[in-house]
Amino acid sequence: MAATKIAIPQLAFNRVRPAPVVLVSGTEAFLADRAIRSLRDILKAEDPSLEIHDIEADQYSPGELITLASPSLFNEPRLIRVVNVEKCTDAFITETIAYLARPADDTYLVLRHAGGVRGKRLLDSIRGGAGSGIEIACLELKKDTEKTEFAASEFAAAGRRVTGGAIRALVAAFSDDLAELASACQQLLADDSDEITEMTVERYYSGRVETTAFTVADAAIAGRTGEALVLLRHALSSGADPVPIVAAFASKLRTMAKISGMTAPASQLASKLGLAPWQIDRGRRDLQGWNEDGLGNCIEAIAATDAQIKGLGRDPVFALERMVAVIAGRGL
């Protein structure tokens, strides 16, 4: 069976606008709830007399939609919010498809469908253009890059400056719950500082930021000295052992040294160097801004630090911080 041609605008959750029919689809409940709240706020601002009605599609009573969409005594605009469309009754499908042929004036019908095949005939009708609607796709944000973009958009929308390190720390701390990530962003927006940095995040959420040895290494190799030192201190205060931290740096620098100057495709180099193609690609990104002298100096610094933390030095924390500073400066 051919897929239904999409004939209506497909908008992001933060680009919602009024339309006779608004289909809010996708599995990400937080984004869907925010989109529906935003639409309500827009309509309320346009006309405070807005009437709001709610329908549960899985408990739908025949005639309910038409009754709620019928003009009121004073012709106030109406917002009809329908949830559980993915579990809707047959009567709801039949009556809503009929409604799409002639939507009521000054009425905004919002249909929340969280996924699945139930109600496909209705969704196909809306996506095909019936009802002159729009669709707000609220898909789950699975990748860290998507969550990073989401967090950045929260600060951009408020016109606040935020460092990349602060956003990365937030995503690391709240990657499992988008609602918590959004709430954390809003709390930081209430902070009085001009710019939100990784230090700000550390102050508010030091107990939540999860730091691994490779996270520290990534920040240092990218030249983000302040962020790398904050992450290092948090890792150590959380009980991390200095030895695996140094080992993580050594692993990444060895990879960079192996592939430095090599231009062959990653797929060709992988077996020759005993690395996975993705490791070669990542190593090439890490090498940007580095030169061979700096790379050599950093490898020597790692070796010296390894000896310091294994008994030759008195202060392993100082040795680690000095190593991080050298590497963040790219050995120069």
Score class of each variant (00 low, 15 high):
249 F>V: 01
217 A>L: 03
153 S>G: 01
268 Q>G: 01
233 R>G: 04
238 S>P: 13
173 A>R: 14
264 A>T: 10
116 G>I: 05
46 E>L: 09
215 T>L: 09
152 A>Q: 07
279 Q>C: 00
268 Q>Y: 12
211 T>W: 14
61 S>L: 13
143 K>C: 03
221 I>W: 05
81 R>H: 11
34 R>C: 01
140 E>Y: 05
101 A>L: 12
119 G>Q: 01
185 C>Q: 03
164 G>A: 03
326 V>L: 09
312 L>K: 11
225 T>K: 15
121 R>Q: 04
113 H>T: 00
119 G>D: 02
286 D>G: 12
98 A>I: 03
13 F>W: 12
316 P>I: 03
181 L>I: 06
261 G>N: 13
215 T>Q: 08
7 A>Y: 04
234 H>C: 11
194 D>W: 05
283 G>V: 02
254 R>N: 12
104 A>R: 10
289 G>Y: 14
327 I>C: 05
65 L>A: 02
331 G>S: 05
222 A>N: 06
200 T>K: 09
49 S>C: 14
11 L>F: 00
256 M>N: 03
268 Q>K: 15
328 A>V: 04
293 D>Q: 08
243 V>P: 03
101 A>G: 06
145 T>N: 09
259 I>R: 10
232 L>V: 07
22 V>S: 02
69 A>N: 03
315 D>C: 06
226 G>S: 10
155 F>R: 04
265 P>A: 00
118 R>H: 12
67 T>R: 09
6 I>R: 10
236 L>A: 03
173 A>I: 06
220 A>L: 11
56 E>R: 13
332 L>Q: 10
240 A>I: 10
104 A>G: 04
267 S>V: 07
256 M>K: 08
220 A>F: 14
304 A>V: 13
27 T>Y: 15
268 Q>R: 15
284 R>W: 06
27 T>H: 11
54 D>E: 14
211 T>G: 07
232 L>G: 02
136 I>E: 02
42 I>D: 09
102 R>K: 13
291 N>E: 03
209 V>N: 15
199 M>W: 09
187 Q>L: 13
35 A>N: 03
270 A>L: 00
200 T>A: 10
189 L>V: 09
53 H>E: 14
104 A>I: 01
49 S>E: 12
219 A>W: 08
98 A>P: 11
298 C>G: 09
37 R>T: 08
73 L>V: 04
24 V>P: 00
99 Y>F: 02
162 V>S: 06
250 A>R: 09
325 A>L: 15
21 V>K: 01
97 I>G: 14
136 I>F: 00
242 P>G: 02
288 Q>H: 07
62 P>H: 13
46 E>S: 12
191 D>N: 08
51 E>D: 11
250 A>S: 02
174 F>Q: 12
87 K>R: 14
19 A>Y: 01
